[in-house]
C-alpha cells in the first residue's frame, strides 16, 4: 500500500513542521511571561533559564512606579473613542454611497478611493503643523478627530451593504422611516459582521499605535500604554527588568484575550481584502 503510506508520511511531516512553527512563534511570548514572574537578578544573569521561584514583585512594581492604571485608562479612552466614531461614521458614509444615489456620489467615491493611494508619511509633518496651530498638540482629539472616519473602512462596509436587498430598505421607507432611522435600526443591525471586523481593525490599530501618541501626547499624564512602556524602557536602561517584562505582559494580555475570543472575525478582517 504505497500511496497510503506516503500519505501518512506527508501528513506527519506537515504536522511536525506546523508544531515547530507554533513553538517558534510562541516562544517569545513564553519568554516574556516567564521573565515577568522571575526575580530581578535572575533576568539579568540567566535570562533564558526558567525562574527558580515565581514572584509577583514585577507586577507590584509596575503599579507602584509606572501609574499603570492611568496608562490603561488613556489607551482605553483613545482606542474606544476612535473605534466607536470611526465605525459609526464610516458606516454612515458607506450606507449613503451604497444605497442613496445622490448626484455626484460616484465621483465622490472614486475620489475617496484615489486618496487611499497617498502614502501616510506625507501627512506626518503638515498635520503636526496644523495641530500645532490649532493648539491641539497634547490633547486626545489630535489623535481622535483625524481618525474619526477612513476610506478603507467606508470601502469595506460599502461592499457589504451593497449586498443588503433594496426591498428591505424600501419597506422601511414606506413605513415612514427617514434615512437616519434606517441607518440606525436596519443597517447597523444587518451589517453587523462587517462592523465587527472594522471595529476590531480600529481597536488594535489605535491600541498599538506608537507614532501618533509619540507626536501628540507630550504630557506624561496623557501617555498611552505603548508610549509609557517605551519611556519606561529608555529612562532606566538595565534597571527595573522585572517591571519592564511585567508591563509588557500586561499590555499584551488584553489584546490577546480579545483576539482569542474574536479570532474568526480577526481572520475575516485580514482575509477579506479585495483584489481587483
Amino acid at each position: 500500500m504505497l500511496p497510503a503510506r506516503r500519505f501518512t508520511w506527508t501528513t506527519a511531516l506537515v504536522y511536525i513542521l506546523l508544531i515547530l512553527g507554533a513553538l517558534v512563534v510562541l516562544y517569545p511570548f513564553f519568554y516574556m511571561i516567564m521573565n515577568s514572574f522571575k526575580p530581578g537578578p535572575e533576568i539579568l544573569n540567566s535570562p533564558t533559564r526558567l525562574p527558580s521561584r515565581l514572584t509577583l514583585s514585577g507586577y507590584a512594581g509596575v503599579f507602584a512606579t509606572l501609574n499603570m492604571w492611568r496608562l490603561f485608562r488613556n489607551s482605553l479612552i483613545l482606542a474606544s473613542s476612535i473605534t466607536i466614531l470611526n465605525t459609526g461614521l464610516s458606516a454612515l458614509a458607506a450606507y449613503a454611497i451604497a444605497k442613496i444615489p445622490f448626484p455626484g456620489r460616484d465621483q465622490l467615491f472614486s475620489f475617496m478611493l484615489a486618496t487611499m493611494m497617498i502614502p501616510g508619511v506625507l501627512f506626518l509633518i503638515p498635520t503636526y503643523v496644523v495641530m500645532y496651530r490649532l493648539g491641539w498638540v497634547g490633547h486626545f482629539y489630535a489623535l481622535i478627530i483625524p481618525a474619526a472616519i477612513s476610506v478603507y473602512n467606508i470601502f469595506l462596509i460599502r461592499q457589504f451593504i451593497i449586498g443588503i436587498p433594496n426591498e428591505l430598505i424600501e419597506a422601511a421607507r414606506l413605513d415612514g422611516a427617514n434615512e437616519l432611522q434606517i441607518y440606525w435600526r436596519l443597517i447597523l443591525a444587518l451589517a453587523r459582521p462587517v462592523l465587527v471586523t472594522v471595529a476590531i481593525l480600529n481597536f488594535i490599530g489605535s491600541w498599538n499605535d506608537f507614532l501618533g501618541p509619540l507626536l501628540y501626547l507630550n504630557n506624561p499624564s496623557t501617555w498611552t500604554v505603548q508610549l509609557g512602556l517605551y519611556q519606561f524602557q529608555t529612562s532606566v536602561p538595565g534597571e527595573n527588568a522585572q517591571e519592564i517584562w511585567a508591563s509588557m505582559t500586561l499590555i499584551t494580555v488584553p489584546l490577546v484575550v480579545i483576539y482569542f475570543a474574536l479570532q474568526d472575525q480577526f481572520m475575516q478582517a485580514f482575509a477579506n481584502v479585495s483584489f481587483k
Binding site: 512563534v25 517569545p28 498599538n208 506608537f210 512602556l229
Partner: peptide, 9 residues
C-alpha cells in the same frame, strides 16, 4: 498572534 501584538512590545 504576533500580528495583533504591538510593535513596541
Amino acid at each position: 498572534m504576533p500580528v495583533v501584538t504591538s510593535v513596541v512590545v
